[in-house]
Every structure is written in C-alpha cells, then in structure tokens.
C-alpha cells in the first residue's frame, strides 16, 4: 500500500531524512522508532503530502503523492504530531467538518462521525468545544478524525502521546485490530508499544534507517538475546564457573549476584546456537553435579538495549558534529 523509495529531505544544510526506502502492505503495522529529531515526523509529513521531498518517490495505493496528491490523500488518514484540532469547534462539528472534506454528506456523514467517536471513546464529549477538552480527549479527537473515512492507510504520529496508561492500552489494541485490514505506520519512542502493536519495526536515526525487522528479530540483535540466566543453590562459585566454562555452546559467563546460598550467573551462547540448546546443556551439566537449580531461563533480548546500541545518544551526536 505504501512504497517509499530513496526519500531525502533537507532543511537548509541539515539533512532530516537521508535516502530511506521501505514499504508497508495491507495487514501490516509498521512501528517507526527513533530518538527525537531522527526524522520520523518529517518522513510522515512527506508520506501524507504535507511537505514535498527533495528527492525520492512515495506511492500510496499506487498513487504518487506528488503527481496524484488528491487520490493518494483520499486513501490516507493522518494523525499529525501534537494532534492539532480547531479549538473553536465542538468535537462533533470538527469530525463533521473532516467528514465533509472527505466527501461525506447527510446520513453518511452522521454515521461516520458516530462510528469514529465510538472507536475513540468520544461519545461523552461529542458536543463539547475542543478547547475545553483535556489533552487525552483532544488527542483522541484528532485520532478520530483520521479514522473518519475508514481509510486503507493510516499514518499516526505518536498516537499514544499524552494518554494515560488505560487509554494507551486501548489505542494500542485498536491499532493492532485495525492493522489486520489496513496498512498502518505509527511512530513512537515508547518501545513497549512496538512489541504490543507492531508486526514490523523500523528504527531510524539521524535520517537513516538503522534497523528493519519484526520486533522479535530486533530483540535478537540484543546482546543478551539467547543468554541463559541460571540461579543455583548449594554450589561453590569456583566449581560452578569451571563447570559452565566447560560447556561447548557457552561463550562466556558473568556472575550477576552472589550471596552465601544463591549464585546467579548469566551464560552467553556462542554464535549460531539454537535457542534452548544452551539452557538444556546447562541443565545437564548442573544435574551431573547435583546442584539445585532455583531458576533457569533463556533471555529474550530487550528492545531498549537494541535501541540504545544502534542509535546514538544526543551527547555523542553533538561530539561528532
């Protein structure tokens, strides 16, 4: 549904988006990750046709956004960053206005407004003026606007920003549910959101794509992915370390915690070890010595660790430039 090729955008000397390419098909929810100022919003603004790219092409449902903007925009719903809305209108008035711009009139318009309001839990504030709404409601009003015409493509710039934990959960569930039938791109810098809602994630840093894969794939890039955490009782540390280093599949082991009775050790696998193999070898080795296992599990890898390792923190960025 969305095809982005070699997209580049610079503002003066600053390159905001540098030659990025990706595509999103129907049934996919693409998470757009990246530190602040990485080029997430700029990319989304280009996809939705708000700002023109310097070079590269974007097609939405086969329509080029620069050649055929109207047709492409008809297919898209867009929630801009900070969720702007006309503050002098009521929620119903605002949603009705966007429905009219989407070509709906009369009963069809009323149905669309009610449906979008239902989806975003706005029924109680439907006749309230937008500027009297709390941030969460205002955000959802703008979100409802993007759903008003039940679009095939949804571009959501930080859809859960400013929501309370319950609302965040609702919105994620909604995104995941809609993602079954639509192509959705949403940006966030909350990593748990990616795991909760995305079928695929792109990490973007300083205008470039630095990672692209399913959340599970990304997590596997984590240093601790596949490592085995083992907690033993009634074992002397030196003997344990010697035994563990004797395991063929283990690369190294690190003692995390040691008390009089319990030792916690993380064992890292050698490359190309199948998930679970290391854990069973460790279990076998420990059984031979008759030590007691208190805990044994293979770590999944953590997204935040991956994120930190492949995107540079602001300070290093400043040092570089």
């Amino acid at each position: 549904m969305i095809k982005v090729q070699n997209l580049t955008k610079s503002f003066g000397p600053k390159i905001a988006v540098n030659n990025i390419s990706f595509s999103v098909e129907r049934g996919e929810v693409l998470g757009f990750l990246g530190p602040n100022g990485a080029g997430k919003s700029t990319s989304m603004r280009m996809i939705t046709g708000f700002i023109p790219p310097n070079s590269g092409t974007i097609t939405v449902g086969g329509f080029d956004i620069t050649q055929d903007p109207i047709e492409a925009k008809k297919l898209m719903g867009y929630l801009p960053e900070n969720a702007p809305a006309y503050t002098d209108m009521t929620v119903a008035g605002f949603l009705g206005f966007t429905a009219e711009l989407r070509g709906m009139r009369g009963a069809e318009k009323i149905r669309a407004v009610n449906r979008a309001a239902d989806l975003c839990f706005l029924n109680t504030v439907l006749h309230q003026s937008v500027d009297t709404l709390s941030k969460g409601y205002r955000h959802r009003t703008c979100f409802a606007q993007s759903l008003i015409h039940d679009p095939d493509v949804l571009i959501l710039d930080e859809p859960t920003d400013g929501l309370d934990p319950n609302q965040k959960h609702e919105v994620r569930t909604l995104i995941r549910k809609m993602g079954e039938k639509k192509a959705i791109v949403f940006s966030t810098h909350i990593l748990e959101e990616v795991e909760a809602a995305c079928s695929r994630a792109i990490i973007i840093d300083r205008g470039q794509i630095v990672a692209n894969g399913t959340p599970a794939e990304l997590k596997n890039r984590s240093d601790i992915a596949g490592a085995v955490l083992v907690k033993l009782t009634g074992a002397p540390l030196a003997a344990v370390q010697q035994k563990l280093s004797g395991i063929a599949k283990a690369r190294k082991s690190v003692v995390l915690n040691q008390t009089d009775t319990v030792i916690a050790i993380r064992v890292y696998p050698k490359p190309d070890t199948r998930n679970g193999d290391l854990a069973s070898s460790i279990a076998d080795a420990v059984r031979e010595e008759n030590w007691k296992i208190q805990e044994l599990h293979t770590e999944e890898g953590r997204l935040d660790e991956v994120f930190r390792s492949i995107t540079l923190p602001d300070t290093t960025q400043q040092e570089r430039s």
Binding site: R45, T48, G49, F50, P69, I70, E71, K73, K74, M76, Y78, P80, E81, N82, P84, A85, Y86, T87, T98, L101, R102, G103, C142, Q145
Partner: peptide, 14 residues
C-alpha cells in the same frame, strides 16, 4: 500556530 494547517493540507483538497 496551532498546527491545523497540517491537518487541512493533508486532506484530499488542493
């Protein structure tokens, strides 16, 4: 100022 221009100009209108 309010950012609604982004909303308006990403609607299917010229």
């Amino acid at each position: 100022r309010s950012g609604t221009i982004e909303l308006l100009l990403t609607m299917p209108i010229t």
